[in-house]
Nucleic acid binder design. Structure first.
Length: 349
DNA sequence: AAGTCGGGGCT
DNA sequence: AGCCCAGACTT
């Protein structure tokens, strides 16, 4: 039996039962694929359930506000996915009368849809022969064929796409694509795969050469930038606080946060006192302040480490633009802010 | 071709 | 604490 048949047989015996596998509706397939970009099933599944419940059709998603979509996406990360999801929903609903593009080439034109997602939707929803190459496929193919070309190099991207395109089952592309990804996710795992029970272990090049732990090959690591954040958690006598929207490019675009002052080092209370926050943030109001966390809270993104202090600013009455503290959970915020809100007991004030 | 964009999990 | 995982887009 060849690679293709062993793989699809393994899949029919071992596939997980997942909600997006019970449908051919391109809206659901597309939604699941956007959620699962850079995200494992375990983390994405509850978000998928929330989204289809809240937005059963592409029209429901299109008619939502971006803020509502971001709120539902909160905690999943890579928030440009949510913004692009909303943009594409509006495009499909209002420009294409709710009908998704039904082929790889046209799917690729949608915002937030790259080579992987276009192939996934084209094959799974429309049975087009379009090979998917996600992180799982890179791992399976590099190990099975002993390919040492770095998977994130220009050559590697082309080489693996070509190989997957040659291997794909022309009769059942949807099943083949899902089979090879599922195989990578649960059998040919990144760490300590159980090769003794693998249906491909007799012909796996990496296993024969003891190379499993060294494949796939990936180039370089990004250098991590350190930043120092000071959030101003303002509280007045009417239980109001201040939130600001992050409108500029960069992390967390269009999410909300407490007013932020970035510094070039971790500030002491004395250094914080010298900041001119009275004029810049507080409309010239008098205030008392205290530091919530003595040790910096370190929030790690893939390419930035955020050393964070939350300063509690108490004042008599905040400016008009303030919001009621009890409304705070309606706003989409980064996990760093959400965790603080959960840990900080506003009721004690 | 290199850099940006989150968050979770494992050790 | 450090390391790994996983696509699309911008520069």
């Amino acid at each position: 039996m060849d690679f293709k048949n062993k793989l699809t047989n393994w899949y029919s015996d071992n596939k997980r039962s997942l909600p997006w596998r019970n449908t051919k509706n391109p809206y659901y397939i597309w939604l699941s694929e956007i959620i699962l970009q850079q995200t494992q099933v375990k983390q994405g599944l509850p978000y998928y359930e929330d989204f289809i419940k809240q937005y059963p059709t592409v029209f429901d998603l299109a008619n939502a506000s971006e803020e509502e979509v971001l709120k539902l996406w909160q905690g999943l990360g890579y928030y440009s996915r949510a913004r692009n999801l909303h943009t594409t929903a509006k495009h499909v609903a209002f420009e294409l009368d709710g009908r998704f593009p039904n082929n790889y080439k046209d799917l690729l034109k949608l915002k937030g849809v790259g080579d992987y997602t276009a192939s996934a939707v084209a094959s799974i929803a429309f049975n087009e022969v379009a090979a998917v190459v996600d992180g799982n496929v890179y791992r399976v193919l590099s190990r099975y064929y002993g390919i040492i070309t770095p998977i994130n190099s220009t050559d590697g991207i082309k080489e693996f796409k070509k190989l997957a395109s040659n291997l794909i089952d022309k009769e059942q592309p949807a099943t083949f694509n899902q089979a090879i990804m599922e195989f990578g996710a649960t059998q040919c795992k990144p760490k300590n795969p159980n090769c003794t029970i693998c249906p491909l272990n007799e012909s796996c090049m990496a296993l024969q050469k003891n190379m499993i732990e060294f494949l796939p090959v990936k180039l370089k690591k990004t250098k991590v930038k350190t930043r120092f954040f000071n959030f101003l958690v303002c509280i007045d006598n009417n239980k109001n606080t201040l939130l600001e929207k992050r409108t500029s490019k960069g992390i967390w675009q269009n999410l909300y946060q407490f007013p932020l002052i970035e510094s070039n080092k971790s500030l002491s209370s004395e250094e914080f006192h010298l900041l001119n926050i009275k004029d810049s943030v507080l409309d010239n109001l008098n205030f008392d302040y205290s530091l919530y966390n003595i040790e910096d809270i370190v929030h790690k993104l893939s390419h930035q480490h955020l050393y964070t202090k939350f300063w509690i600013i108490e004042t008599k009455e905040l400016p008009k633009k303030s919001i009621a503290i009890k409304e705070i959970k309606k706003y989409p915020v980064p996990v760093l802010i959400s965790s603080f809100i959960d840990a900080f007991n506003f009721n004690d004030l």
